[in-house]
């Protein structure tokens, strides 16, 4: 079973900002710059996935479903909220209608943005999904599932009022890092046969 990891989520926190050599500047305009690298031991990185206070975050996706940061694997399309997951009974993105988005429309407090992750890039399907979301009077962001996962993660980490409606992708491109991580996950790093 191979899964694709959602792009690593880093928020670099900069502890100090350095001062530009004032030789080239007039005295009144000392500029403080922010830089990504501050030298050894000064830059810190925060991985959003490992912070339980930030709510549900999608760790990885596969053609079967999604794996969340609480250790659960979710099968099939899902409707994900800041701290809740529901199964979304949708066969493919062709079936998305205003009816299937009813829950997002009726929610109180209002959902500011629904992130819809589709498994297809077909223009016709995108249009029909967009029309459905218009009919349901929702603010939507229609993306490929791969990108929708990351978008949901970042917005959720910012604790915004959002929901995600995600359909697992049909095909995934796997790199060596993903293979290593899935082997590490199942704890069979040194097994030659990949029969999982």
């Amino acid at each position: 079973m191979l899964i694709q990891r959602v792009r690593p989520l880093f928020g670099a926190i900069l502890k100090s900002s350095f001062q530009v050599d004032s030789k080239y500047l007039s005295r009144s305009s000392i500029v403080y710059h922010k830089a990504a690298y501050e030298g050894d031991g000064k830059t810190t990185v925060r991985i959003i996935n490992q912070d339980p206070d930030l709510g549900l975050i999608i760790d990885s996706y596969g053609s079967f479903g999604f794996r969340l940061n609480n250790g659960l694997t979710v099968l099939g399309p899902m409707a994900i909220f800041p701290r809740t997951v529901l199964s979304w009974q949708i066969h493919s993105s062709d079936n998305i209608t205003a009816d299937s988005l009813t829950l997002f429309r009726l929610l109180e407090p209002k959902v500011d943005l629904v992130i819809i992750g589709l498994e297809t890039k077909d223009r016709k399907v995108l249009n029909s999904v967009f029309r459905a979301s218009r009919e349901a009077k929702l603010n939507v962001e229609i993306l490929a599932t791969e990108h929708a996962c990351a978008t949901f993660n970042f917005l959720n980490a910012e604790s915004r009022s959002i929901a995600g409606a995600l359909i697992p992708p049909l095909h995934i491109e796997v790199n060596e890092d993903d293979m290593l991580n899935s082997k590490l996950h199942y704890g069979n790093l040194y097994n030659r046969r990949d029969d999982l």
């Binding site: 909220f81 701290r83 109180e108 407090p109």
Partner: peptide, 17 residues
């Protein structure tokens, strides 16, 4: 519980999570 404050009164026709 759900990451946001739930309203005390819900208007007719709407629902909370």
């Amino acid at each position: 519980d759900f990451g946001f404050k739930e309203p005390e009164r819900v208007p007719y026709g709407r629902t909370t999570l």
